[in-house]
Every structure is written in C-alpha cells, then in structure tokens.
C-alpha cells in the first residue's frame, strides 16, 4: 500500500528538503550544548549516598541481644536466584531458634528484595551498600558475620519499610 497522506514530501518544505540548513541548525544546537554545566559525578571522590528506598546488598539486622532472624527459611525459599542458604539451630532464649549458618551468594543475588518482603521478622533488609568488589569467587559468598549489621545503621531502610510496606 502506498502512503499518500502526510508523506515526507508533504511535511518538509524546500529548505528542510535540501538538508543543509537543518544540519546547520542541529550543529548549532549541539554547539550550545557543549558549554552547559556538566552533570557527571566524579565517583570515587564524590560518593553518592542513596535514600532509604535504595535496594543495595541484603543484610541481616543485628539487635542488642543478637540477630532478629529466626531461621524460618522463607527468604531462602522465595529467593528467585537461589542465593540464600540457611541452617537452623535451637537456643535457650525466648526466640528458641537462630541461624547456625546464613550465607548469601552475592554473585547470584539480583537485588530483587523478595527476601526482605517475605521475612516475618523484618530480619533481612536491603542496605545502601553498592560498591561490592570481590577478588575471588569464594569471597563473594557472604557468611553471617559479614551479613550482620547493627540496627542503628539501617534506620533509613526500616523507616522506609514502615511507611511503604503493606
């Protein structure tokens, strides 16, 4: 089918059809753009501080009397990337259960935040850490010691969850 209405021929006037004036206009535009202020952030020197809504590395919340996690295994079950491994143990405390082993493989994690969403204890939350660098594959599997972060440092995220989580 031949297009007859609103073709290039009808839309463009003579000066637009010979390209050159329009090209000159385009070049003028980019030339002006060259002197506008730059928006680049010089990363390693100027660090970006994310807000509470940012989903960085998932971490475990550490309270005064130990971790919140009760080793229910829901996060491990829901994780689409199969990144979490939990092994449960029993204690004498009121909570009765705690994770003997809690590992997140950061090479698998896709930062979806499902683990945080599903956790009944609000024990695993997404932190603001985004500069994750590992030199070996084994280093990328974070164990419990590396995952536990004092609650005081996670206030922004917990506040965010309080406001927006349903």
């Amino acid at each position: 089918m031949n297009i007859e209405k609103n073709t290039e021929k009808q839309r463009l006037n003579f000066w637009e059809k010979i390209y050159l004036p329009e090209i000159a206009r385009g070049l003028g535009m980019t030339f002006v753009e060259m002197f506008k202020p730059k928006v680049t952030r010089q990363y390693p020197e100027e660090v970006w501080n994310p807000t509470g809504s940012y989903r960085g590395r998932p971490v475990l919340v550490l309270e005064e009397d130990g971790e919140r996690c009760v080793a229910c295994g829901l996060c491990s079950r829901v994780c689409p990337a199969l990144a979490i491994e939990v092994a449960a143990g029993e204690t004498e405390k009121t909570k009765e259960r705690y994770p003997i082993k809690f590992e997140i493989n950061m090479l698998r994690c896709i930062y979806c935040g499902f683990c945080e969403e599903v956790c009944p204890e609000e024990a695993i939350v997404m932190s603001k850490d985004y500069d994750l660098v590992f030199e070996k594959q084994e280093d990328a599997i974070l164990d419990k010691d590396q995952l536990l972060i004092p609650m005081a440092q996670l206030q922004d995220r917990l506040e965010f969850l309080r406001q927006y989580r349903r």
Binding site: T30, E33, M34, F35, K36, P37, K38, V39, T40, Q42
Partner: peptide, 10 residues
C-alpha cells in the same frame, strides 16, 4: 572529549 561535552559529560 567533544562527545562528552555535547552530552553534558566530562
């Protein structure tokens, strides 16, 4: 450099 300047980069 020039491409960066045109795109408001450094």
């Amino acid at each position: 450099k020039i491409s960066a300047w045109i795109q408001n980069r450094i």
